[in-house]
Design a binder for these strands. Sequence first.
DNA 1: TTGTATGCGTTATCAT
DNA 2: ATGATAACGCATACAA
Lengths: 336, 336
Amino acid sequence: MKKYSIKDIAELSGVSVATVSRVINDNGRFSEETRKRVLRVIEETGYKMNYSAKSLRMNKSFSIGILVPDISNYFFSDVVQKIEEILFDKGYSTIICNTARNQEKETAYLHMLEGKGVDGLIVISGAEAFEFDYSQIEKQIPYICIDREPKEKSRTIFISSNHYQGAFEATEQLIHSGCKQPIIAVHNRKSTSTKERLNGFKDALKKNNIAFNENSNLLNVDIRSSLFEADLISFLARNPAADGIFSLNDSIALEILLVLRKNIRSVPKYIKLIGFDDMPAGRYSSPTLSTVKQDTSKIALTAVESLLNLISFPSDTGKSIIIPVSLTLRESTQGN
Amino acid sequence: MKKYSIKDIAELSGVSVATVSRVINDNGRFSEETRKRVLRVIEETGYKMNYSAKSLRMNKSFSIGILVPDISNYFFSDVVQKIEEILFDKGYSTIICNTARNQEKETAYLHMLEGKGVDGLIVISGAEAFEFDYSQIEKQIPYICIDREPKEKSRTIFISSNHYQGAFEATEQLIHSGCKQPIIAVHNRKSTSTKERLNGFKDALKKNNIAFNENSNLLNVDIRSSLFEADLISFLARNPAADGIFSLNDSIALEILLVLRKNIRSVPKYIKLIGFDDMPAGRYSSPTLSTVKQDTSKIALTAVESLLNLISFPSDTGKSIIIPVSLTLRESTQGN
DNA sequence: TTGTATGCGTTATCAT
DNA sequence: ATGATAACGCATACAA
């Protein structure tokens, strides 16, 4: 089956290419009759626009790049999926780039996306050791950041869940259900959201007159390490009064739960536990996991709207948008 | 910062555009000296290839489309992520399209991808009510199918896990750990993989001299339905001797586990349970979930290799490639 | 070894 | 209301 071009359509409908183009894009002026004729030929031939040509001519690619650290992580895949859906409805295609939290891959992707001439960029992150370095890009592509503090705040829009609020409320939930010594379990990846969550935790302690102490309230773990279980157990041995854990995310919380379940104190009877992200797995664990739920739909919608706005008005920049979160309470924080 | 074209590079390095092109693509002939000079100018200017122009000229887009039913499903996102990674290393970018199991969206995506001129297509599915209708596409784009039987097998390559083997082994695992009346839990989405898994289940019964009966060995459920729990309970009431469930996938298995846990017979003591897909959640449930693990790395690699081969040799088609699966045994099938 | 010229499919400018 | 044509950036056939 042949591939038709606008020129073929022009010949077949007895008009010029210019007219066909006008009809297709519904601008300029043309008679109702030609419109119908052209449209019918397009229908019959199954003509499809060649976007490479269109992009070349218009210097616009109708595609958006997304940089995401790890798309097999539920939170990321959820928000990416929603972004992609919204963008598609608006006529954009999405190039999803999995950077695997790797600086070099990120740079390589950035070059590729620039070459492809993406009209905009969405940068997602929750835990990067390095900052997003936009200066790698020569051409000024509009971009927005989700959960990732950009180097040059003034050149972008920053969208984030209210990590502080989520952490604060999660911690208070622990306290209100009876915890005297709440712990925050963190990993070693520093990021804006990590810091915010730590701040929320600390402020919740302060508000409830509990002193924060690095040794007795802060648990540093690495779930990928073979020492994870030993580290956790030894921390609990050093802190026998620990009775509540706010975990930086559900992955950590669930791993902690696994260890607690087979080893020591039962949850929630002796230790209460709450996570962050509302992973599906939290519904199936035993006990089921309380958590902080991010509003991925709103994040996705805000991201797309902000980016498209930025594409139209490149100077409309420098904003920060904070999306509220909500608690999802399950068994792991039930009071006695 | 200006956007350089090949013409600018030509002027800056004192050669013609043709020479620059040759150097960039490392074909044709040129002196070592010009090569160095051109490359240095490219380096200095930060020149990036314009892929729209290249695509237009070469009638090749260096991008691949992936049609996936639901990227927030772990199995899909896992294999998509791996495909994307391999493709990127080979110089292709990937356009991931989430069809949401929706025929219209799929068609719309197909048109968009054709317009973008993707060089190839990967169609993934595990549960579709409709078959992939390639005739929607005018131009003959090479495509391969994962877990989805295409209408015209002779025009594509079909890649699939060995669902039959997985189901057979899972069922035998139930029987070997003592189950006398194994059940298969299915949903109402018909697909190749569903059928294969059902066949594997039936054949395992047959081999072990257990007669298959629609009423006592087949449980039809819909986890999205509000009647799910009631249906399950009533089935178990009608079949008090049911002592093992092979679930079409882990999602169903985990939902069943939830009901079993709060209601009736404990797992694995009275009922053993095994799923399919090896979702992360299966590690955290209580009891932890036995399952059939698909080899997503191999699927991804095979898919990419097959597709790229098909792009080079469009007639090298009609093959079926079956990837072995393996059992991941956890608590939910432990013998008494 | 290198340069010149053409065309890919589209939009936009300027005619008519 | 419609047509002719230049231009977008690149690869390549052909010339030199």
